[in-house]
Design a protein around this nucleic acid. Structure first.
Lengths: 357, 357
DNA sequence: CTGAAAGCGCTTACAG
DNA sequence: CTGAAAGCGCTTACAG
C-alpha cells in the first residue's frame, strides 16, 4: 500500500476545465475571479477532496502563518490556561501554533533552531528566555520575539508580564499591615526576571520601611522543590509567621507541608500569599490570597503585540505590564483596613497619605 | 525597514564555491559528500547564519515531520503532563508538534482542516474524536490518526487508552469490599468512550454481583460542573456514602464541595475514588484513591505506534490498552484485605476464587 | 476576469 | 564525489 497523493491545484484545474492559477484564485479571498468560475472550482475541489497545500503556499508567500510557542512548567496551572487562551487567540487571527517545551530553568535555545527552520512568523516564549546570541540571530533574521511572563536582560526583546514589582511591594505592605513581622520569601527560579522582580519589590518595600529582610528559600517554581524549601523554613526555631511564595503553585506546596507535616493552621499559625491567582489556589482548601496575573488580558496583549510586530517589523521594543490586584482570600491574616469588594472579589487597596506608594 | 531575507542554499553555495546541491548534501545526514566539501559548506553557512528551510524541504520530500496534536481539558492535570511527555517523545524522533485545542466535548473537525493543510505526517487526538467523515478523509489522504485516551465508534481508528473497563469493575469491587452499599457514579462527557467504558465496567460489575445500580450524575469532566453535580448528589436524603468519580479532576471538585459545603469528612462520611492518578489528587489534602493511567507508558505507546503508522501505512488498526493499578490512598475506606505494597505504593489486588474477575 | 510563466528553496535521480 | 536540472505545489505579476 503506497501513500496516497493529495489532490493538487493542477488536478482540480483539469477537472474544472480552468487553469491552475484560477484554482489558486478561487481559494484566495479577495482575488479577482468570476463567481461562476469559483463555483466550478469549488465543486471540482469538493469532488477531489482538495485543500490548498499550506507548505507550498508558505514557500511562495514567504509567510508561514505559524508562530513558534515555547512553554514550560505546565504543572503550574497558570500555563495550561495561558496555552488555551493563546491557542484560541492565534487561531482567531489565522495562525497555527508550533509548540515546544524547553527544559525548565534553561534557555529555549536548542529546540529553537528546529523551530526557526520552519520560518515561523514569530516566536512567543512563555516562562523561558533565549540566549542573547539567539536573540541576535532572530533579530538578524527579522523574526519577532516576544517574551511572556519573563523579561530579558537584553532589553531589546519585547515582553508581556504582570506587575511583578508592584505586586511584591504590595504583598510586603499587606503582610506588615496584618501585623506580621517574621516574614519569609520563597523564590522561584533565581535568575528568572519574575522571581527577581517579585523579590526586589518585596524586599525593597521592607527595607524602605525599616523592616529586616525576610528569611529566604528557593523553590525553583516546582512543587517538590517548594515543599522541600517549606520544610527547611518551617523547621527553623525562628520560623516565619508569613510567607510570600513566588507563585501559587509553590504556595500550594507550602500549604500542604505546613498543614500535613507541621500541623499548622492557615492563617492562624501561618499566613501564605501567592502570585498568579490561578488553579487550585482558588479552591476552598487553599483559598489563597494572591496577586493576580489575569490570563486573558495578558494573552490578549501578547497576541495583539505579536501581530503588530509581524505586520510592522519596525515596531519598537515594548514591555507591556498587565495590571493585577492583590486578591484577598483566607490564606493570610487580614489587615484591619484596606480590603474592598471589586467584581465579586475582595481586593486590597491600602489607603495612603503619600502619592507614590 | 523591510523584512530581511534568510540566507538560502544558493547563497551558501556561492560563498563556498560549490554547487547548491552540494550545500543540500552537506546538510543531509548520510549523503555522499567529501568531508572537505562539507567543512567548507559548514563554514560558509555559519558565516551567513544559514539553516535549511524546513518548508522547502517538506515540499520536495513530501514529508513534513510535523505531527498535528489536539488536546483539550487542560485544566485536568493529566493533559499538561501528557503534553510534556508527548513533546519530549516526538522531539526525540525528530518531529515537531502543531498543537490545536478543540472546544471541550466537541469534535476536533473545524480546526482539523487547517492542520491538514499543513500535510502533517500524522494526527494525535487527545481527549477528542473526529467525525467519521473526517476519519474517512484522513484515511483517503493516507494520514495516520491516533486517538489518545478515547476510542472512536468507527473501529478503524487506532487508539491508546488506559484500562477503563477493568478500572471501573475493580473500583466497584473495591468499594463493595469496603462495605459500601450506597454508591454514586459521576460521569464525565457522556458520549466519550472513557466515560462510557468506566461506567459500564462499574455498573457491569455491580449488576453481575447482585448490587443495585449507583446513583448517577454528570460532571462533564469539568471542575465546576462536577462541583454542581456533587451538590445535587450530596443533598439527597439517600446520598451515597461512596462516589466513583470519572476522573481525578472531578474527584477533587467533589472533595472540595463535600468538605467545605457539606462538612463531610473523607473517608469517614464519604469515600471517593478517582481515575488517572495525577496532579493535585496525589497531594496530602486529597490523597485520592484512584485507578492509574500512567502517562509515560501511555505516551511511549502513542509515539511508538504513530511512528510505526507513518513508516508503514499498512499498519493495521490497533487499540493499545495500557495497564493501570488501583492506587490506594486515604480518600476511600479500605477493604479488610487485598491491599499490597508495590513500588512504594499501596495498590489493590483482590484475592479471587474465580479465574476471570 | 483569465492563463502562461516565473519563482519560492529545497531534494534527488542522473550523468559524469 | 559533484553539478545541472527537474520537480515539489503553490502565488503573483504580466499580458491579454
Amino acid at each position: 500500500m503506497t501513500r496516497k497523493r493529495h489532490a493538487t491545484a493542477t488536478d482540480v484545474a483539469r477537472l474544472a476545465g480552468v487553469s491552475q492559477s484560477a484554482v489558486s484564485r478561487a481559494f484566495t479571498p479577495g482575488a479577482s475571479i468570476a463567481e461562476e468560475t469559483r463555483a466550478r472550482v469549488a465543486e471540482a475541489a469538493r469532488q477531489l477532496g482538495y485543500r490548498p497545500n499550506a507548505i507550498a503556499r508558505s514557500l511562495t508567500t514567504r509567510r508561514s502563518r505559524i508562530i513558534g510557542v515555547a512553554a514550560s512548567y505546565l504543572q503550574n496551572h497558570f500555563y495550561p490556561d495561558v496555552l488555551e487562551a493563546l491557542s484560541r487567540g492565534l487561531q482567531a487571527r489565522g495562525y497555527q501554533m508550533l509548540l515546544f517545551m524547553p527544559d525548565a530553568g534553561r534557555h529555549a535555545d536548542p529546540q529553537l533552531q528546529e523551530v526557526l527552520a520552519w520560518r515561523v512568523d514569530a516566536l512567543i516564549l512563555a516562562s523561558t528566555t533565549l540566549s542573547s546570541a539567539l536573540a541576535d540571530q532572530c533579530q538578524a533574521a527579522g523574526i519577532p520575539v516576544l517574551l511572556f511572563n519573563r523579561t530579558s536582560r537584553a532589553p531589546s526583546v519585547s515582553s508581556v508580564t504582570g506587575e511583578n514589582l508592584r505586586g511584591g511591594r504590595l504583598i510586603a505592605e499587606f503582610l506588615v499591615a496584618s501585623g506580621h513581622r517574621r516574614l519569609g520569601f520563597l523564590a522561584g527560579i533565581e535568575n528568572s526576571s519574575t522571581s527577581r522582580d517579585r523579590e526586589s519589590g518585596f524586599c525593597g518595600w521592607l527595607q524602605e520601611n525599616g523592616h529586616p529582610p525576610p528569611l529566604r528559600e528557593v523553590g525553583l517554581y516546582q512543587f517538590e522543590e517548594a515543599a522541600a524549601a517549606a520544610r527547611r523554613l518551617l523547621a527553623r526555631p525562628d520560623r516565619p509567621d508569613a510567607i510570600f511564595c513566588g507563585n501559587d503553585h509553590m504556595a500550594t506546596a507550602v500549604a500542604e507541608v505546613a498543614r500535613h507535616e507541621f500541623g499548622l493552621r492557615i492563617p492562624r499559625d501561618l499566613s501564605l500569599v501567592g502570585f498568579d491567582d490561578t488553579g487550585p489556589a482558588r479552591w476552598p482548601s487553599f483559598s489563597l490570597t494572591s496577586f493576580s496575573q489575569p490570563v486573558q488580558p495578558m494573552v490578549d496583549a501578547t497576541v495583539a503585540l505579536v501581530c503588530e510586530m509581524i505586520e510592522d517589523p519596525a515596531t519598537p521594543t515594548r514591555h507591556e505590564v498587565v495590571r493585577g490586584e492583590l486578591v484577598v482570600r483566607g490564606s493570610a491574616r487580614m489587615p484591619p483596613e484596606g480590603c474592598v469588594s471589586l467584581a465579586e472579589q475582595l481586593v486590597w487597596r491600602p489607603v495612603r497619605n503619600d502619592i507614590t506608594g
